[in-house]
Every structure is written in C-alpha cells, then in structure tokens.
C-alpha cells in the first residue's frame, strides 16, 4: 500500500505526516506536488496542515483550484480514503468534499495546545480501531478552526453519524463551556464541539487536531497513531479482498 502526502507551497506539516507514515509506521509514502495531477498510485491521500497558498484570502480557498486537488476529488469520488488535517480540513471543506466551514477561533487568537477529543464512531477507515467514547490526547494549532455549519447541515451530519471527533475533557466528557477561551475544553468555539467530520460515504475525514504530532512517545502522546494505523489496517484488508 502507498500513502501520498500533498505538498502545497505553504504546507508546513507535510514533513511531519511523511515522517510518521514512513518512519514510525514503516509505510511506503510519497509527496504529491500541488502542480502535478498525478497521485502516483497512492491508495490514501493526506492533505496536511500549513498555509497552502499563504491563506490571505480565506484558508484553503485557493488550494481547491490546484491541479492536485482535482485528482484528490476524483480519488475521493471513487471511494479512496482522504484525510485532511488542520489546513487540510479547511481545504476539504472549501473543495466541497466535506460540509460546513472553519471560521476564526472564538477567542480570536491562534491556539496551540494539547486537547482531548472523543472518538464518536468506529465506522470510518481511520477510526476503525479506536474505541467509541475514548478520549484521545492530540494537539491543536490553528487560528481558524471553529467549525461552523447551518442548523440543517448540522442536524444532517449529526443524524448520519458524520461527526467523528468532538472536543472533550480528559475523561471524554463534553459538558463544560464552549467559549473557546483559555482553559476551556473547546479550544475554538466549534459548534457541537466538533473537531472532525467525515463525508456521507465515510471515506473522507477532516479534523483540526494534528494526529501526526501525537504519534511518538517523545512528543507527549501516541494517541494519534491509532488513526494512521487504522487507515493502514483498512488498506491492508482491502488489499486482501482484491
């Protein structure tokens, strides 16, 4: 199996994702340059964090028009797994692969810290090995990570079980304020504490927290590794069935 990590000119978490996939998981991993349409035969595509094209207009707004994103959209339409992290999540929303939008943090500041997120469903290629309700310790680092969708959309994704992760406390509890202020469990004021969602077909995941920053013991948490392991597991199974 092969993983592809997209490189926009302003991607800055690309090397981190690459390191985790290649050196921690030992998987074949390639970079996919934004100007190329080819996905080089990657079975799964990761859209990493960063500031794709500087993001002066709106996060991810320009990235959706890049040649590589046309291929990613096609890959997703064919059922291939796609994972957008942080800026990658913003790009997937802008590209129409995921519903809703990420807006400015409620506290107005950029926020970088370890948070806890509760896994809401094992029915995605990424969370298949994670116990529902488990609180994962994974860092966030963003200025525009407040998940917003209108009431109808929100009701729909909740009903479909498309909410994959919610901000919670260390014990997986959701109660507490949602002000996005320093110290609260919801770091950005996201509606319904949403930290990550998937599409209806469940093969596209977008999340604000950075699982690649929580994949080695030296960095303070290995809770994020389960997502990449889950994805590798899914791809391996798929390989067996084919």
């Amino acid at each position: 199996m092969k993983f592809g990590v997209i490189q926009f000119p302003g991607s800055n978490c690309d090397q981190d994702v690459f390191h985790v996939l290649k050196h921690v998981l030992g998987q074949e991993t390639v970079y996919l340059w934004h100007k190329d349409e080819s996905l080089q035969g990657a079975d799964a595509v990761i859209v990493p964090g960063g500031f794709s094209y500087g993001d002066y207009l709106r996060c991810g707004a320009i990235a959706r028009f890049s040649p590589v994103m046309r291929s990613v959209v096609a890959h997703a339409a064919a059922g291939g797994p796609v994972m957008g992290i942080c800026n990658g999540f913003q790009i997937l929303c802008e590209s129409g692969l995921l519903p809703g939008a990420l807006i400015r943090n409620k506290g107005l500041h950029f926020v970088c810290r370890h948070v806890h997120i509760r896994s809401e469903t094992p029915q995605t290629p990424f969370t298949c090995q994670i116990r529902t309700g488990a609180a994962l310790k994974i860092p966030v680092a963003h200025g525009e990570g407040c998940y917003f969708a209108d009431d109808a959309t929100l009701a729909r994704i909740e009903k479909n079980g498309q909410v994959v992760f919610r901000y919670c406390d260390a014990y997986g509890r959701l109660d507490g304020d949602a002000t996005g202020a320093c110290g609260s469990i919801n770091p950005n004021g996201s509606r319904n504490n949403i930290a990550g969602i998937c599409n209806e077909k469940r093969n596209v995941l977008g999340m604000m927290p950075h699982p690649e920053r929580a994949a080695e013991r030296e960095l303070g948490s290995t809770d994020g590794l389960a997502l990449f392991e889950g994805l590798a597991h899914t791809l391996a199974l798929k390989g067996c069935l084919q």
């Binding site: 800055n12 926020v111 680092a141």
Partner: peptide
C-alpha cells in the same frame, strides 16, 4: 506561547 505554534516540525520534546 499558546499563540505560537510550538509543536510544528514534530521536534519539541
């Protein structure tokens, strides 16, 4: 320091 991304590059131990 929470306004700074202090974890990017997966280096800060």
């Amino acid at each position: 320091y929470e306004q700074y991304d202090h974890m990017v590059r997966n280096g800060a131990t």
